Amino acid sequence: MKSKHWTWVGWPLGALPLAWITMQAAGGQLGPDPAETLVELLGWWSLVMLLACLTMRPAAQLLKVPGLVIWRRTFGLWAFGYVCMHFLAWATLLLGWDPSFLGEELTKRPYIIIGMLAWLALWPLALTSTRQSRRRLGRKWVKLHRLIFPAVLLGVVHQSWVQKSGYGETLIFVSVLLILLLYRILHGRNMIRK
C-alpha cells in the first residue's frame, strides 16, 4: 500500500491521547490536583509521540510496511503539539503567567531548564516539517532533523526528574530510546538517509 493511503490514519491516532485526557478532565477524573495531572499527562504523551516518531522507520522496515514511514512527520508534529500544550498548561495553570514565577522557574530549576531546551530543539523541526522545506534545505534538512535525538534525550531526563514515584517509566523510555539508537547505528547510512 502506498504512503498516501496511510497518511490520514496517523492524525486520529495522535489525537486519541488528547481525546482521552479531555474526557478525563471533563469527568473530573484527574485526581486531587487536576492542573498538575494535566501538565504531567501532556508531557508524558509528548515523549511517547517523540518515540513513536523515531519508531516509524524501523517498524516500516521490520514489518515490511513502507507506508508507516509517512507517520514520522505526523507523530513528530503531534509530539510538538503535545509539548506546546504541556508548556502552556504549566505556564497557565501552575504559574498563572506570573513573570516572577516564570523567571524563577526558568533559571533556578534544572528540570525546567532541561524541559525548555527539549522544547526549543523541536521548534526548528516543526518549522521545517514541510516538503517544501525538505526540498529547499536538501541534505541540511537531514542534519537539522537529527535534533530529534537530543530533544528526546532531554525529554527523558526532564521526565525522570519530574517523576514522583519510582523510575519504571523512565527505564522504559530509556530502553526504547537505546533500542532505536542501536537499530539506527546497526543499519548505518541507510537509516540516516531518511
Results as ranks from 00 to 15, higher is better:
residue 81 G to S: 06
residue 9 V to Q: 04
residue 78 W to A: 08
residue 169 E to L: 09
residue 6 W to M: 15
residue 151 A to R: 03
residue 158 H to R: 04
residue 81 G to E: 02
residue 77 L to F: 03
residue 95 L to G: 01
residue 9 V to K: 05
residue 19 A to C: 12
residue 62 L to E: 13
residue 156 V to R: 03
residue 33 D to P: 03
residue 59 A to W: 03
residue 36 E to M: 12
residue 114 I to F: 01
residue 15 A to Q: 11
residue 123 W to T: 00
residue 80 F to A: 04
residue 152 V to G: 02
residue 29 Q to L: 12
residue 19 A to L: 15
residue 184 R to S: 12
residue 105 E to Y: 10
residue 26 A to W: 14
residue 184 R to Y: 08
residue 126 A to M: 14
residue 76 G to A: 04
residue 187 H to Q: 15
residue 161 W to M: 09
residue 143 K to V: 10
residue 84 C to G: 08
residue 15 A to N: 09
residue 82 Y to G: 01
residue 154 L to D: 00
residue 136 R to G: 08
residue 151 A to K: 02
residue 119 W to G: 13
residue 1 M to P: 15
residue 44 W to M: 11
residue 145 H to W: 09
residue 151 A to Y: 00
residue 36 E to W: 09
residue 35 A to R: 05
residue 105 E to T: 09
residue 26 A to L: 14
residue 62 L to M: 11
residue 101 F to V: 05
residue 188 G to D: 13
residue 60 A to Q: 07
residue 53 C to Y: 02
residue 109 R to C: 01
residue 126 A to Y: 09
residue 142 V to K: 15
residue 151 A to C: 08
residue 37 T to Y: 05
residue 162 V to C: 04
residue 139 R to D: 10
residue 117 L to T: 07
residue 61 Q to Y: 12
residue 192 I to R: 15
residue 120 L to E: 08
residue 193 R to E: 14
residue 187 H to I: 14
residue 29 Q to W: 08
residue 170 T to K: 07
residue 116 M to I: 04
residue 170 T to Y: 07
residue 133 S to L: 14
residue 55 T to C: 15
residue 40 E to F: 11
residue 77 L to R: 03
residue 169 E to V: 05
residue 181 L to C: 10
residue 2 K to F: 09
residue 23 M to P: 04
residue 164 K to L: 11
residue 30 L to P: 00
residue 118 A to V: 01
residue 137 L to V: 09
residue 188 G to Y: 13
residue 47 L to F: 04
residue 172 I to G: 04
residue 187 H to F: 15
residue 54 L to S: 07
residue 117 L to I: 14
residue 40 E to N: 11
residue 44 W to G: 00
residue 22 T to C: 14
residue 30 L to E: 04
residue 121 A to H: 00
residue 191 M to T: 10
residue 125 L to R: 03
residue 18 L to K: 06
residue 132 Q to R: 05
residue 164 K to G: 07
residue 107 T to V: 06
residue 174 V to H: 06
residue 56 M to H: 04
residue 155 G to R: 02
residue 109 R to E: 11
residue 151 A to E: 00
residue 37 T to K: 14
residue 178 L to Y: 10
residue 82 Y to S: 01
residue 173 F to G: 01
residue 19 A to Q: 08
residue 81 G to R: 02
residue 84 C to A: 10
residue 185 I to N: 14
residue 47 L to R: 02
residue 146 R to L: 09
residue 142 V to C: 09
residue 147 L to S: 07
residue 7 T to Y: 08
residue 19 A to T: 13
residue 33 D to S: 08
